[in-house]
Design a binder for these strands. Structure first.
Lengths: 198, 198
DNA sequence: TGGGAAGTTGACCAGTTGGTTAATTTGAAA
DNA sequence: TTTCAAATTAACCAACTGGTCAACTTCCCA
């Protein structure tokens, strides 16, 4: 019934790219449509509003990213390595983005969160949810590491939050200074926070 | 010669408030003028552009904040206490803002940096400069603490960056979750990072 | 092969954006 | 008391904002 189209996906991809490279405020519906090669009428055929597209884009990005995370945080991998590999993965992703955009883009969830969380509660709730899910990867890895005795014993949730806040701060600084090198600090920083033994 | 006016200061104050409570993108020249009780013509009498006002606002805010920091980081105070007091001061400031706006607003420099650093290089440079200055407070306190033997010995600059990234991550999470309680975690987190003895 | 649901299009909208201008009012200092 | 630089005002601008709509095209499926 009816014809098929890739326009919806193209809009989502364009939204992710533009927000990541710039900001929510700097990304207009016209820009999105232009980048996606879609007319505005079609935009509003697929999405109720700009916010709704952002929601869909965030969801899509997170669903994709989770696939990688599930591999990185596989229980087969030594727990501390999981955390370090996660950030190595970030670094590599940022490198690819740098080659494409000429800029370090950082974490889109956080940049977006900083921008919109006092202004758009739908977006804020979605971003919160994703970050809450994300931190659980750290948390369970930390618990495993503690059980295995490879790091200092501390409240795992608290440690996860510290590592998490630290990593997000680093990503933001990498974006602000447009400097991939900042990301290399994570490894030693995380070891200090986690009290990695040996 | 000519008459005097407080309009310039009112514009700066309005800009700071609006950016902090919302974002750069959500803050229009009309909003600023309305809040400041200034007509748009006057706006452009005092400032060349919106960016230029933002620059002035950031400068002004930082100049004010530095006065507090100079007291907090006085060499008279035990070095680890300086860092903890700095964050206690943040917390208190955030509490006051919360009472006023009903929201945790976090660090305006970082929220703004996340939003504009890929888009407006003048703003980005200014924000970079401020953060670079800020981190020196941490750095010298850490050096003093190490000299005094109250924390573990490590590259002071590296430690300062970790604490700094961590604190900024925390502030951002407090903003996103609208939760002052997040800020209380700093004290134990900072002690873990710094390896505070005793 | 043809009906009809789904996708596409471009013209349109009112409100807002950052920014300009020329005329006018003010008040500090000579 | 005059003077004139500095401050204020309101009207104006083109471009852009997010969003709407009715007409039109496509092409999946029965």
């Amino acid at each position: 019934m009816g014809r098929t189209s890739t326009a919806k996906d193209r809009l989502i991809d364009a939204m992710i790219e533009l927000i990541w490279a710039g900001s929510y405020g700097s990304t207009s519906v016209d820009h999105i449509c232009e980048r996606a090669g879609v007319k505005k009428g079609s935009f509003y055929h697929f999405f109720e509003s700009k916010t709704e597209l952002a929601l869909a884009a965030i969801d899509h990005g997170w669903t994709e990213h989770r696939k990688e995370l599930d591999q990185i945080f596989s229980p087969v991998v030594p727990p501390v390595e999981r955390i370090l590999n996660c950030f190595r993965n970030f670094r590599q992703e940022q490198e690819e983005l740098f080659e494409k955009h000429g800029r370090v883009l950082g974490c889109p969830i956080h940049s977006l969160g900083a921008e919109v969380s006092t202004v758009d509660e739908k977006l804020r709730d979605k971003l919160q949810e994703i970050l809450s899910q994300f931190i659980r990867y750290y948390e369970s890895a930390i618990r495993d590491a503690q059980a295995q005795g490879s790091i200092v014993t501390h409240d795992a949730m608290a440690l996860a939050r510290i590592v998490f806040a630290y990593s997000e701060g680093l990503l933001l600084h990498a974006r602000m200074w447009n400097d991939l090198g900042r990301l290399d600090e994570f490894e030693s920083g995380a070891k200090i926070i986690l009290g990695v033994k040996g």
